[in-house]
Design a protein around this nucleic acid. Structure first.
Lengths: 222, 222, 222, 222
DNA sequence: AATGAATGAGCGTTCATTCAT
DNA sequence: AATGAATGAACGCTCATTCAT
């Protein structure tokens, strides 16, 4: 049950006993969430209708409004879920790690790759919305920005450490370094999605990792 | 007049010489095209209304229908323009080039960067639509795929040359190599757009180019 | 417990004595009734949702359906309550009265004023619904008309008596006389409600009563 | 053409020549306005759907949105029209009048009665909305309040004059006096509407006027 | 006695599109 | 060459209503 970790939408007015109702509730929320992740990623938020989501899960639009109070709120829920299972979990891992900066950067790519394979739509949802709402002064725009700022912050920390220790080349300034790392990470995910599975995700990750570490020049030419 | 090269929409009812009318016509098409590029990129195709485009250029929706016969057709026109000024021009340059594979790959990044700076919305439009319509079985989806296949083909050619010559490491298979190059290129553009100008485009390009060439490891650690 | 005299909705499944349950039942019905009176008057029937009523009394919509079987039925209940406490009580009083026609007309205004002060929403509900459903061929429309016909009948009786006895001027025909009395009575209540308490109800009643009795011309000008 | 005096909704973006289009425009606006007046009065604003209005005028809902941008805006337009043809015209008349206070009060009733006979739905719309939105903190609520305040002001002026001159009894305070006049005026209109034409409007007006002037007591009883 | 889940009809609104002028 | 009027399908959303528990 990878998704809907700690789903927190629309608290019911009263206590939540472990009744069949509570189970039904969690299940419905989970199914709507899953369907929304997939559709928002494959057709964009604006082009996805609630009817499509409802059809997918075999409910009516009304059911979606019962659990989430609006389309926007549904997306905000998805963002919270995705942030939790992707960003937060990486943050915890990065904090706990005692590896070098390079190891932690590689871990970032691996973490992304693993998430991308296990719950591709969560990661892609984050990326997709960061494009669809980039710079938009809506609540969603602000939420997405906040999530990305968190990622930037985590990576900046690692990069500064690495440059201080001499693990990473000083030739690139931290801000651009971080931007580049995110660019490669997101670009990789999008390219994988664009190819619609007609490319081996693992090989792509490997290619990106090798390139980031060593560059593309053949050994002898350096 | 960088945009609207080879505008082919809405044949005028009578053949026209370079009358004032024809000039007005070109100008109207050009203005609509520019506005559409910008809006489709910043708000996505689905979320942009023809009214917004019409407002932007001071015309009515009817005028857009007069020149382009549908919203979809307008986007197809944008794709043709973008393909022309970005892909085709790169193809010609790559063909003419006598440099090494690495030099030609670097040229790809530089070409993208130059386009990104000169007409950011054209390049971003291509990328954005490749996401918004990835895998969609519409005419637009097919058109976008065709353009990307063209890019993949051009790059594959360069990479194979490079690996044959020993310019590029053999450690990565051509398909994934190309995917990686496109991923980095597009990721870079998106990250630049995401930051909304709060990052220096030139520095970002430089960071990506250096990393692609040499990797991130400090010299002594290799 | 002024409201909900003769509550007749939703017969309980089993005959109940005055058990705690029956008390709870009466209390719930009473609270729903009160809230509905207030909301139907202040926001109109059409614009009031059952959710708003439910929120007001701290129950769920389901509870309302348990006691009253539909929104329409809830309003019919309100009308019955209002008719009982306003029209019927006035009828009894008018019947028992041995005063002159004028005294009984004044009593009508005073009765209305007293009801208006004690349970303003019941009286206003009647008036409001007579406007909202005037001439509508629904059950509610017919119910409201019946209530008003009862009022017209009572007043017509008094007026005819008064004109026969010479208490009231013959210059006005009974039907229009009654219409005028009701118009003034209801208009007064509405004006008081429109002013939202920013006017002294007692002074307004006094002004209307004096005018109805003596007119507005200063004594010496008559 | 009683309604739509100076209709000012949705200014077209460009110049308005006296083309057939402009005529069409005025006609469509006029027909929608008329239908809306009637339906909002007979079924209330909340209970009237735009579909009903569209059906009435043989257009689609979209046409209503083309001219008025929302249901609320349509009502605001109605209020502006009604204010113009009822309140403003009375204000001009009252200003120009050189009669006594009593004559001007009678003129108020006659003005209302004439409006009520010529364009009953405009006057009733004002009254109806003053009930439906009384005290509501919406734009409509504020607009309606402003209109009523204007009426209160006009009448207060007349009453104060009258009491100063001794035309009107001093026994009633101006504020309550005005409230009473409005109450009788509106109550009369509502009663007439409530009876749905089953009563002679002229006789009702006469009854109210006589009562207001002389009261209901027979001459000899005073 | 009352709830929470879910429905379905219909609402106000949007928007690509058509067409007479 | 371009507009303004109008459409119709579909959208996000609301709400009275049903029902198992």
């Amino acid at each position: 049950m990878p998704d809907s970790i700690e789903a927190e939408p629309a608290e019911p007015r009263k206590k939540r006993r472990a009744t069949p109702n509570a189970v039904l509730r969690e299940d419905s929320i989970h199914r709507i969430t899953e369907a929304a992740f997939r559709l928002f990623v494959t057709r964009s938020y604006a082009a996805t209708t609630l009817q499509q989501i409802a059809d997918e899960v075999g409910m009516t639009k009304g059911a979606i409004f019962f659990y989430f109070q609006s389309k926007e709120n549904l997306l905000l829920h998805l963002l919270a879920v995705a942030e939790q299972s992707i960003v937060t979990s990486f943050a915890q891992q990065a904090e706990a790690s005692s590896g070098s900066a390079v190891e932690r950067l590689v871990a970032f790519f691996h973490h992304g790759a693993r998430q991308g394979l296990e719950r591709p739509y969560q990661l892609l949802c984050l990326i997709q919305m960061s494009i669809e709402f980039s710079g938009s002064e809506t609540e969603i725009g602000r939420r997405v920005s906040a999530i990305y700022d968190k990622i930037y912050g985590l990576l900046a920390h690692i990069v500064e450490d690495g440059q201080r220790n001499g693990d990473l080349t000083d030739a690139i300034k931290p801000v651009e370094f971080v931007a580049m790392v995110v660019a490669m990470h997101d670009g990789m995910m999008l390219e994988w999605h664009r190819r619609g599975g007609r490319i081996d995700g693992r090989l792509l990750v490997q290619a990106v990792r090798m390139t980031v570490l060593n560059g593309v020049l053949a050994q002898e030419r350096r």
